[in-house]
Design a binder for these strands. Structure first.
Lengths: 352, 352
DNA sequence: CTGAAAGCGCTTACAG
DNA sequence: CTGAAAGCGCTTACAG
């Protein structure tokens, strides 16, 4: 136990050199003779010297830290994306400062501000509200590059973004069902309140992924020459129980749907359970499609047909994109908006 | 876009006060008159002033950042624990510096060193190797409090720890099976190579959770007056396929087990699938128990009996413990070793 | 190759 | 309540 952390000054004194020389020997910059280096290294080891990154960052202007802001780390989607991020940034020598917002805008704003003040070299953000970008605007104006993931945000058109083509993903699921002969196709969604807006056609920025998926559902029906029957659009909150109720409601209709699309995996698990409890056979009596390839979707019988998002890839690409931005010494280049494709995986819940 | 970030000096100049006064007005410490405060705040807003936490930390000696080191964020177990940590530390004004080690000791050592140099106020670590604690020893000697989660580590007996009572957890599962009349109880484990060590009885520190669970299995059998039949101890790597093979092997034995315990949820999913594919009925022909209450365990038919770990709580307690340590200004208190209890949840895979 | 000095942007006694 | 000065622990021109 040292009474006082040894600093470079202490090491320099012990080695009989200047702090500049000690710094060069220890930091691996500049030129130092072999003999001197050894003396300094020995002194450092002797004193248990631990460099202070804070001081170093103060002068170099870089922290080798990136900020990552998500709504819920416990959600497998974000946990997997996060893994993609760290797998890419860690070998490059960057660490991750993580914030969990719980989907609260105020919490996100605080996190972005604090990270900016801690001088992260850049940040990756899964925003809580697609319509609120002022805090991100501030960060970018201060020179902190921002990469958006999963959701576009209005107000920061110059931020890079990596998203999944949710429009296409949902449409592909619907097309799959249409091809199988379904005409009454329902949907369980968190974005039910956006149906009107979605039907009239809005631009993607400013929409949640769930709303974009709802739009994909609507447009795919239209392409197939089918009407959008509002009684088949069931709203649910983001939890299993709510989805269970929504599915039960759909199945209890006078004219129930023969197939249902769930716009994410949490909703799908609730819906799946509802079908089980009603004793209906899949796909004979009702077909079901979910999102994300989670382990349970292949363990249940029948297996669940899903739209598989490239979740890990989403994080990895975001990490790479941010590192590129940080490395780019020239002025601001044009923003990159990368859209990843989701893939339909057909299983027993739709195909006999 | 400012050419040059505004510093406190710039704000002070613009407000016509000293940097000390500007700092007091902005930082909320010391005394400032209302009039002065307003002038300073106005100047700061005008210049788009963004405090530099690095500089502040240099002088205050605290970063309000804690380090969290895990083997795999994408694993629901760690993702959930991480959520528990952030939920506790974030309201207290701390952010998390995250490192993912992939279970690699070298990676963990690097992460711990870097975090220590970045001057985190403390760290929470789920160690890659229970036997390797030198790097943690260094951190603690440098005055950085460490809280161990999920795994004890030798060499740092003075670090706090929050773990699950895995001995008891596994034993309870076995007792449940014994009570149901089972006499041939198998186990699928990652710690098969430790069987000899575990049978001869070693202390907990220095053992992986999976090895501790294996020990619980062994001691519960003994308590029930049953012999440990080594042919019923099936080794598997940490993935579904390997567990699938292990279960298939057990079921193909001349005298197969009538019940099998899987020491974690990944192994359980592989084993469950193997039972399905062999067309065996649970629990009539074989009973199965897993770990962790994941969504799929209630979606499959029959539902899987599990030992439920208090995962979120594990993280939350670790966060609280670390905050306590950081707040404690007095010298080193005695280390706290908190053991959380797991809970058996009986479902259809063991009970008709 | 090495050193003296300045500076990164703050906070903290110490005076007034 | 306010300010001048020192200092946190490094790195970086600038000389030699």
């Amino acid at each position: 136990m040292t009474t006082h952390d040894a600093s470079l000054i202490d090491v320099a004194r012990a080695a009989g050199v200047s702090t500049a020389t000690a710094g060069r020997a220890l930091g691996g910059y500049g030129q130092v003779s072999e003999r001197t280096r050894e003396r300094v290294l020995a002194a450092a080891a002797e004193l248990g010297y631990r460099p202070n990154s804070l001081a170093r960052s103060m002068v170099t202007g870089s922290t080798h830290t990136i900020g990552v802001v998500v709504t819920d780390v416990a959600n497998p989607f974000f946990a997997t994306a996060l893994r993609g991020i760290t797998d890419v940034t860690s070998p490059a020598g960057f660490e991750v400062l993580l914030a969990n917002t719980g989907g609260q805008l105020a919490s996100e704003q605080r996190a972005v501000t604090v990270m900016s003040e801690k001088r992260v070299d850049g940040m990756i953000v899964a925003a809580a509200r697609p319509g609120e970008g002022a805090h991100l605007r501030h960060a970018m104006d201060a020179g902190v590059p921002v990469v958006l993931i999963d959701r576009q945000v209005s107000g920061v058109p110059d931020a890079d973004s990596i998203t999944v083509d949710n429009d296409h993903a949902a449409a592909e699921a619907v097309a799959h069902l249409v091809e199988l002969g379904h005409r009454r196709i329902g949907v369980i969604t968190e974005a039910g309140d956006q149906l009107a807006r979605v039907r009239s056609g809005t631009r993607r920025r400013g929409l949640f992924p769930s709303a974009v998926r709802l739009r994909g559902y609507v447009s795919a029906l239209r392409s197939a020459g089918l009407d959008v029957d509002e009684t088949l659009v069931a709203s649910a909150r983001y939890d299993r129980e709510s989805a269970y109720d929504a599915m039960t409601r759909l199945l209890g209709l006078a004219h129930p749907p023969t197939a249902v699309l769930c716009t994410d995996n949490v909703l799908a698990s609730g819906a799946y359970r509802a079908v089980q409890d009603r004793g209906l056979r899949m796909p004979a009596e009702v077909s079901l499609i979910g999102f994300d390839d989670e382990p349970w979707t292949t363990l249940v019988r029948p297996g669940l047909t899903i739209v598989e998002q490239p979740t890990y890839e989403l994080g990895a690409r975001a990490g790479r994109q941010l590192l590129d931005r940080i490395a780019a010494t020239e002025g601001p280049r044009r923003p990159q908006h990368i859209q990843l494709r989701a893939k339909l995986v057909a299983r027993g819940s739709t195909v006999p």
